[in-house]
Structure formats: structure tokens, C-alpha cells
């Protein structure tokens, strides 16, 4: 523990870079294997909008040239790598000529806000409920109620979202149906705006929490049963420690360790994780951006969003590698794992 050795840090950084590089290459290759030409799609959309397109052949050639689709693959790849490293993902083909990075910059805070908060809430609630399912002092009512609540886990988030919308918005009128903030407030750092964001974020967040807490609760339950049988938990009881102290310092504190690794992996996934929830709540985050981009064959946006997801996952794993020795003294930086 203590200081992080330089060679370990370098090793981890190299792994981080390599992971991102390989994954970025894959997301460049995969869309190119698709038979659809994005410029065709663009022309098609223009035609749909304006009836017919004059000189469509010339426009096609010009756009193909403009997007660099005539260049040999290695030139395209080299430009892609160079641009990606500078966070230049090019220009959206669907929302031409908006730069992809601008679209991501607009969408990312919404998703991070909504998803990170709901992930943290889910993590806390799920693990706590999972722990309470095992703890011997949990009131009997809770021991029945928690497994019963697991029923929600089997509902796809899209249905739970619709159900929540029906009950809380349509029937009770308590929460707004869609959107990330009210039309009557000006986006900016004001209390009104913040309140509006929280008000609008409540239902989407709830729909995620309700269907995903079971993942954490079930995992935690299994881990807690193991910890409950450990000799140190038995000794803690024999020491006459207070039951809550045993629950937190001996049981949860040890059982939570593998869950933290899972949490890091989820951070990366959460950006794309709830595409459909964002979609049905018309919440302008990364999920909706990715969803629309796939429908529109918007290669630059797909690549940009995918790259951000990869980067977030790799960064989260990198951070967990660094902090894990601080939360588990048995793990040391730079020690070979066998």
C-alpha cells in the first residue's frame, strides 16, 4: 500500500492504451463491413425531404470525396487514428455538418448525470438489500419483501419505463412524460433549471433502479452467505461486537470487494447501457444519440459514441486497479497474480 510503484503505473497505462487502441480499430472495421453506403442513405434522406434531388450523381461524388471515402483504406485508417486521438470524430452524416464531438459533448453530461446517479443509487440499494437478505437480524417482513421485489428485475427496462410513465405521468400527473428539462426554463446554472432537471430525471432513473437493483442484490446475497460462514464472522460474534458493527465492518466490508470490480465495468457500460430508457423518455443522452445514429447509418457518430464507451470502460478498470489495494490490503500493486 501507499505509493504506487512507477513501473506498475506504466504497465497499467500501457495496457489502458493498448486496450483502447485495439477496440478503436475494431469499431473502425466493423461498420465498413456493412453493405450500406452512408452517402446513399444521406441522398435518400434528402430525397425523402425534398421530393427529388437535382444532380444527385454529382452530389454523391462530391460527398463521397468530402468524407474521404475514396481514399485507400490505410489512409482512411490513419486519418481515423490521428483524429480519434485528438477527439476529432469528424462530421455527422445525418446531422450534417455538425461535428460529432459537439453532439457527444451535448449528450454526454445528460447521460453521465442520469446514469451515474441511477447506477450509484442502484449499487447502494442493491447491495444493502442483498446484505439484508442474509443478515440474521433483518426483520422478517423485509426478508420476505426483498425477494418479492426481485420480480421487477425480470421486467425489461423499456416496459418498466412505460409502466412508470403510465402510472406517474398519465394517471397521477406527478411527473413529466418526456424530456430532460422543462421548456419554460433556460438551461444554465440556476436553481430553477437544476430543479427541473431532477424533476424530469426522476422517472427514467427510477425505471433503471427498479429493474437493475436485483443484479446487485443477488450478487451481494451470494457473497454475504460466504462471508457469513467465514470464521472471522463467527469470531466477531463471539467477541460480543454489536450486530450492526459486525454487519458493516466484518460482513459487508468484505463481501463488497468483488462488487466494486463489477461497478467499474458497469461505469463504462452505462453510457450505452440504457439506450431504450433514454429513447422512450426522449432523454437527449448518449443512448438516444447512438440509437438515432444506428437508424441513420451515421458512421462518424457510431464510431465516436463507441469510442467514448470504450474509453470510459478502460478508464474505470484502470482506476479500480489503482484503488483496489487501498480497499483490500491483501492485494498489492505490481504483484504477479497467479
Amino acid at each position: 500500500m501507499g505509493r504506487i510503484p512507477a513501473d506498475y503505473l506504466l504497465n497499467r497505462l500501457f495496457t489502458l492504451f493498448l486496450t483502447v487502441f485495439i477496440a478503436a480499430t475494431l469499431i473502425w472495421i466493423i461498420p465498413r463491413m456493412s453493405p450500406i453506403n452512408p452517402v446513399d442513405v444521406m441522398i435518400g434522406r434528402m430525397a425523402a425531404g425534398g421530393g427529388s434531388v437535382e444532380n444527385s450523381g454529382a452530389i454523391l461524388a462530391q460527398l463521397t470525396e468530402r468524407f474521404g471515402l475514396n481514399d485507400p483504406w490505410y489512409v482512411q485508417y490513419w486519418l481515423y487514428v490521428r483524429n480519434t486521438l485528438t477527439f476529432d470524430f469528424g462530421i455527422s452524416t445525418a446531422s450534417f455538418p455538425t461535428p460529432v464531438v459537439t453532439m457527444i459533448a451535448n449528450a454526454l453530461p445528460w447521460t453521465l448525470g442520469l446514469m451515474l446517479i441511477s447506477l450509484v443509487i442502484t449499487f447502494v440499494i442493491g447491495n444493502l438489500l442483498g446484505a439484508l437478505m442474509v443478515w440474521e437480524r433483518t426483520p422478517r417482513l423485509w426478508k420476505v419483501a426483498i425477494p418479492a421485489a426481485m420480480v421487477f428485475t425480470s421486467i425489461p427496462p423499456i416496459l418498466s419505463g412505460l409502466l412508470l410513465m403510465y402510472v406517474f405521468s398519465t394517471q397521477l400527473g406527478l411527473f413529466p412524460l418526456t424530456g430532460a428539462y422543462g421548456l419554460n426554463v433556460e438551461p444554465g446554472w440556476s436553481w430553477d433549471f437544476a430543479a427541473s432537471v431532477l424533476y424530469h430525471g426522476f422517472l427514467p432513473a427510477l425505471s433503471i433502479v427498479v429493474v437493475t437493483f436485483g443484479f446487485w442484490a443477488l450478487g451481494m446475497r451470494g457473497l454475504m452467505i460466504t462471508v457469513q460462514g467465514e470464521d472471522y464472522t463467527v469470531l466477531a460474534k463471539a467477541k460480543g461486537l454489536k450486530p450492526r458493527y459486525i454487519l458493516y465492518k466484518y460482513m459487508i466490508r468484505n463481501a463488497i470487494l468483488p462488487q466494486i470490480t463489477a461497478f467499474a465495468l458497469k461505469i463504462g457500460m452505462l453510457v450505452a447501457g440504457q439506450v431504450l430508457v433514454e429513447r422512450i423518455f426522449a432523454y437527449n443522452g448518449m443512448g438516444k444519440l447512438l440509437y438515432d445514429a444506428i437508424l441513420d447509418q451515421d458512421f462518424p457518430v457510431i464510431q465516436g459514441v463507441s469510442f467514448v464507451i470504450i474509453l470510459m470502460t478502460a478508464l474505470a478498470v484502470f482506476l479500480v486497479d489503482l484503488i483496489y489495494p487501498l480497499i483490500d490490503p491483501r492485494i498489492r500493486h505490481g504483484e504477479a497474480t497467479s
Partner: peptide, 14 residues
Amino acid sequence: AYIPQGAMNSLNPI
């Protein structure tokens, strides 16, 4: 007081 059997595992690892 109780002194347990499993010497290896009787103390809280963290």
C-alpha cells in the same frame, strides 16, 4: 471468550 479453530481464517482480512 472463544478461540476458534481455523487459525488461517479467524481474523478479518481487511
